[in-house]
Design a protein around this nucleic acid. Structure first.
Length: 897
RNA sequence: GGGCGAGUGGCGGAACGGUUUACGCGUACGACUCAAAAUCGUAUGGGCUUUGUCCCAUGUGGGUUCGAAUCCCACCUCGCCCACCA
């Protein structure tokens, strides 16, 4: 018999699969569909590493199993190829990103094909293909038409070294996610997507999908819904100013604040507004220390986010002298401060400060010596004093009256300690005595009745900054025309513009979306890819691309030169695979509705945790939008989402080029073969956990395959057939275990149970063929090449034995014997799993003292008498009285003495 | 500071109320070999002046239970994500 030659086998079967279009998904097949999805890779110059391939292998195993279970499986692959590394490479070398992308995708394709993944290569996609991105642009235009894409002057995060705007999500600790460089705030006209309009649905619909709990929690926190109230504080001039003749101009001005703790409002001793808050400009004439305030604001603006966060400990701020605010609940005057610990972008950009019940306000008040007034007292611990008649007697049960509790309580009362939790109210007018919860309800009602505020829901989620000033991205398909704007102005009344216009460099333009028939707006050829220092996209320099005939008036117009962020192309790629199969991206969209209906939603999507709040949320948003405009039939794109752990380097650190600990699958495969590699990736540790790569570990899975090869040779070398009860029972156990484990992504234990089965077979001389065949079937998703080869050998032997003389036609080398991947996934027989003997554990006082084999399903009585008759046990029991006997059927008996 | 998760042999890990250390790596010894590699076999948590019907071991300290790695409480350490969100 030949030795196990993985190279030969792998090549043979990979060719066979490809030649026979083995893993092509059938649109509209009558079989039930199963759509599994992995995150398509960004084709970098370094090539694949084992971090990618582990998760792909896992999904490949699931796909292969589903096919054997009778599903029509779609397991597609493509390239998320727009991105900065490619652009940076182009800047350095002058080579067109297209060329680089081609080179990298070719390499990735070669690598993936060599690893035996069962992808449907006929649907390969590439986000940088104009036929692909014309649809990305098309979706943008639909968003624009529905008012969900808009342009806005925004203080954006600007990366000084990449020279581009970044979304909040792309700035980490004040640094650029890509290059790690410093960022600062800049004002720029940016295209925005109104994801916040979908915030509530993105949150609520999490209930109906099967995402890992931690993914749901992360998305929930990211969306960050909080219920509270907005409250209007009237602004007045402070007394000193009133006295100095200039009467209060009666145009009432208000500051609106957002709070989740209305119940603490009687403890509000000042207001704070963010440095960017518009009210400061509006109050300019009334602020007495304007110079000081402006100085502070300028300083705050200069601070990058990094500096702002670094200064967490030291709070800064300036009082707006000359004005005060009136607390609508008690009509008390409170001072107004400007401070950068208040964020302009959240809530109303202004807060009511309650130092007694908010840590940040407390800190600020301490520093500026402001009044701290406690109005909420703790309920459960040590209230030695009662401030009012609470509505519920039980709330006042004094739990402990030790000194500590009393001190704590007094500290709160004296304003020495901040108490940020719920409690019951004191010194709160008509609301005194209510619990925080109840008070929030009542006070909000009161606010709404008196029209001084209202119930409000706030989200941390912000709109998505969609503009990038880069070359290597999808051009935003918008044209700006001055002539059209002039015409409309003449036609319409001056003040009523029923069209979109925009101001660029002081000139006004009309915004004209590119028509569907003119898509794609293709990236022009350029000589230089560098972003400009002015912050404009490199596209702005291509005059004959920028200057364009207006599609409406045929006059001089110009194109938008910003491009889309990376996340655009990946927000809908699961649909692109379907379109690719049908009509290769031709218009119109109606062509594809049927295929969407057949395949969506994705049944199982696996990817990295790092995409939970970006890609995964963005693509849920786009899908919901596409659902609303009736393009896709389901409101959620992915039915089930799981995530994988990272593979760390041998040193236990994250794999990275700079650390030099990256493992390239190519090198592993050369020495050990694809099947050993696939198995080891699955065996290395729990799938959801990070595990270090151990270069020696793979020896084990290679030996495992060698054993399989040997056993098959033994089986084939002699007539076997006699049933082996033990092996049969173990087979059925293994079928169950492997099947269950795959579903729960317990791949490491699945592999180990396959190993246990093989170890047992190895001990036996005689493994019946029909048992062995079933083993090959359940092995095949993990190690498809060797499984195919052994299956074929086995079949060839059987067939040549039965049909002697038959000159079997020799078409393709292998197809005549079928393929193991066309077999049915075997069912286990529950009866065969149950053994008639089990190991009865005999414990005394919970400690194991003896183990004996006994018959299954014996009664407690029987077990007891067996236990008590054991010599060892008798010795233990000598001179002791049996107190109690606990019996766990088919497991153990515990005697207490 | 907040959220999520994890701490078990020399190492990756299994078990997730019932025999701690499955499976694999490594190591030691043995077989085969002139020899080595490969392969196969055996052993492999620690302790003992007691080799036993012994004792101790799942980050630390408590608790619940006949019985805890597993459940509860407190603490320590590490990882990931978020972070002045009112």
């Amino acid at each position: 018999m030949e030795k196990y030659n993985f190279k030969k086998i792998e090549q043979k079967w990979q060719k066979y699969w490809e030649k026979n279009n083995f893993y092509r998904a059938q649109d509209f097949s009558k079989k039930p569909k199963y759509y599994c999805l992995i995150e398509f890779p960004y084709p970098s110059a370094e090539g694949l590493h084992v971090g990618h391939t582990r998760s792909y292998t896992a999904m490949d195993i699931i796909a292969r199993k589903r096919r054997m279970q009778g599903y029509n499986v779609l397991n597609p692959i493509g390239w998320d190829a727009f991105g900065l590394p490619t652009e940076n490479y182009a800047i350095k070398t002058g080579i067109h990103p297209k060329v680089v992308t081609k080179k990298n995708t070719d390499n990735y394709r070669r690598q993936l094909k060599s690893l035996g993944f069962s992808f449907d290569w006929s649907r390969e996609i590439n986000t940088t293909d104009p036929e692909y991105y014309k649809w990305t642009q098309w979706i943008f235009l639909q968003l624009y038409k529905k008012g969900l894409a808009y342009k806005k002057k925004m203080p954006i995060n600007w990366c000084l070294s990449c020279k581009t705007g970044l979304a909040n999500e792309e700035v980490i600790d004040g640094k650029c996610e890509r290059c790690g460089g410093e960022t600062e705030k800049r004002e720029k006209e940016q295209w925005m997507l109104a994801i916040t309009k979908y915030a509530d649905r993105l949150l609520k619909d999490l209930d109906n999908i099967d995402y890992l709990e931690k993914i749901k929690v992360q998305q929930t926190n990211w969306i960050g819904k909080s219920e509270g109230a907005t409250i209007k504080f009237q602004i007045i001039n402070s007394k000193s100013q009133i006295n100095s003749k200039s009467k209060i101009s009666n145009s009432k001005q208000f500051i609106e604040v957002f709070t989740t703790r209305v119940d603490t409002i009687f403890g509000c001793t000042y207001l704070v507004v963010a440095p960017e808050h518009i009210i400061i400009k509006n109050l300019e004439s009334r602020i007495k220390n304007l110079g000081e305030v402006e100085k502070y604001i300028n300083q705050a603006k200069k601070k990058s986010d990094l500096q702002r966060t670094e200064l967490v400990k030291e709070k800064t701020g300036v009082e707006l002298k000359g004005v005060k605010a009136i607390n609508p609940f008690n009509n008390e005057e409170v001072p107004i401060f400007v401070a950068d610990y208040v964020l302009a972008s959240y809530g109303t950009g202004a807060v009511m400060a309650v130092p007694a019940h908010d840590e940040r306000d407390f800190e600020f008040a301490k520093k500026f010596n402001l009044l701290i007034e406690a109005v909420v007292m703790p309920i459960t611990k040590g209230p030695t004093k009662i401030y009012s008649q609470p509505p519920d007697e039980k709330l006042h049960k004094i739990v402990k009256q030790d000194l500590k509790a009393e001190k704590w309580f007094d500290g709160i009362e004296k304003g020495e300690i901040c108490y940020p939790d719920d409690g019951y109210l004191k010194k709160s007018g008509q609301f005194t005595g209510l619990t925080s919860e109840k008070a929030r309800q009542e006070m909000t009602k009161w606010l709404e009745k008196s029209k001084l505020g209202k119930k409000t829901t706030q989200y941390k989620l912000r709109d998505w900054i969609f503009s990038r000033q880069h070359y290597w991205g999808e051009p935003i398909p918008i044209i700006y025309c001055r002539k059209c704007l002039e015409k409309s102005k003449i036609k319409n009344q001056k003040s009523k513009f029923d069209y979109d216009y925009i101001e660029i460099d002081g000139l006004e333009y009309m915004v004209i979306p590119v028509a569907e028939k003119d898509l794609p707006v293709e990236l022009p050829e350029v000589k230089k890819y560098e972003p400009t220092d002015t912050g404009e996209s490199p596209l702005a320099n291509i005059k004959d691309w920028v200057n364009v005939k207006c599609p409406k008036c045929k006059g001089q117009a110009k194109r938008e030169t910003d491009t889309m962020p990376n996340w655009a192309g990946s927000s809908w790629y699961y649909l692109a695979y379907l379109m690719r199969g049908i009509s290769n991206f031709k218009f119109p969209i109606s062509k594809y509705k049927k295929v969407f209906k057949y395949w969506t939603p994705v049944d199982w999507y696996n990817g990295g945790m790092e995409h939970t709040t970006l890609h995964l949320l963005y693509s849920r948003f786009w899908n919901k939008f596409l659902y609303d405009i009736k393009v896709v039939p389901t409101s959620e794109p992915y039915k089930k989402r799981t995530s994988h752990g990272m593979i760390l380097g041998e040193d236990g650190e994250k794999m990275s080029k700079s650390r030099g600990n990256v493992v390239n699958p190519d090198d592993v495969v050369v020495n050990f073969g694809v099947d050993a590699f696939r198995l080891y990736q699955m065996f290395i540790g729990p799938f959801e956990q990070a595990t270090p790569w151990d270069p020696r570990g793979i020896e084990g899975t290679k030996r495992f395959l060698g054993k399989i090869w040997d056993i098959q040779n033994r089986i084939m070398s002699h007539e076997s057939g006699s049933m082996n009860k033990k092996i049969e029972s173990l087979l059925h156990k293994t079928i169950k275990k492997v099947g269950d484990d795959i579903e729960e992504m317990g791949f490491n234990t699945a592999v180990s149970s396959l190993m246990i089965f093989i170890n047992k077979c190895y001990e036996c001389d005689d493994v019946p063929k029909n048992i062995w065949e079933k083993f090959l079937i359940i092995l095949s998703p993990f190690a498809p090449h060797i499984a195919e080869e052994l299956w074929e050998q086995l079949r060839r032997q059987t067939q040549t034995a039965t049909q002697t003389n038959a000159d079997s036609p020799r078409k393709s080398a292998s197809s005549q014997y079928g393929s193991v991947s066309l077999e049915q996934w075997p069912k286990y027989n529950p009866k065969l799993i149950i053994e008639d003997i089990f190991e009865l554990v005999i414990q005394i006082n919970g400690r194991v003292r003896d183990i004996i084999s006994v018959k299954k399903d014996i009664s407690q009585k029987e077990a007891e008498s067996i236990a008590l008759s054991q010599e060892k046990i008798k010795n233990w029991l000598k001179g002791n009285k049996v107190k109690k006997v606990i019996f766990v059927p088919n497991r153990l008996i515990n005697i207490t003495i």
